[in-house]
Amino acid sequence: MYAQLIKTARSGIKSRDEMSKQERAFQDKIDADIKIEPRDWMPDDYRATLIRQIGQHAHSEVVGQLPEGNWITRAPTLERKAILLAKVQDEAGHGLYLYAAAETLGESRDELVRLLHEGRMKYSSIFNYPTLNWADIGAVGWLVDGAAIVNQVALQRTSYGPYSRAMVRICKEESFHARQGYHAIMKMAFGTEAQKAMAQDALNRLWFPAMMMFGPHDSESTHSEQSMAWKIKVKSNDELRQQFVDQTIPQIEYLGLDLPDPGIKWNETRGHYDFSDPDWDEFIDVIRGNGPCNVDRMKDRVNAWEDGTWVRDGLLAHARKRARAAAE
């Protein structure tokens, strides 16, 4: 998802016998669905895993602005432009809520940003794919934000209070994102033949990258177990992916578009759609930095940060000067 392949800070899961008294009390709270709050005692590994997951989630929101920001000046109408601008602004806000949640764990936002810019933290693989035309912008809202909602709705029940509250706020805004995207795609799918072909092409290209957002299969996801026990993760990768497929197929059918994967078939016994795996080698390759846009995304992020340094420093110098003058 927006946080994929999060390495839990410890390997394997601790049994109750191995736990100290403090750890047992902590696990009891988690099991009773009592939220953990910033100054409560927590195991170091819980804190470290959360910082990693929330940090990656925050980075994804911020980097996620880049593929869409690319189309603000070229939106087909003034209304679409205003909508897209509002959505991209929301993403900046989502990044802020999440960085703020991470900061309650004792990691500063500037430090997290530094780790991202040094390549020591990741963001979701999905944002390393290009947005080639206007149909892609519709498809991103519909599929990428749609996938994000599936994950984030589950995360509203995560055990860490500030993370959970950030998710509640984000989910409220995210549904606007998915709906505006689907609305844009509807216009194209019901438009001219050429527009419909563009909508189909965008769906075909973004389908598998969207599937990858949920991360590897549960069987391959070695770090999930402890995160689930701590309720940092609430649902498994495969559960969330299935939920996304099941809710999206009828939306594709309504548009009259062809299914993007020949393996998609209703399975009566399971009561779910079957579907094909994305190319997991490609997934690993993109995570490692070799996707179509990894280099550009990082370059744009680092440039934005460096180009803004004089503004940040100038405002702070001004604030300090005024505070000094007021004190005298």
Binding site: L96, A166, R312, A319
Partner: peptide, 11 residues
């Protein structure tokens, strides 16, 4: 409702 960073109260 949440937090943010800013150089001073006005910002």
């Amino acid at each position: 409702v949440g937090s943010l960073h800013a150089p001073d109260a006005e910002m």
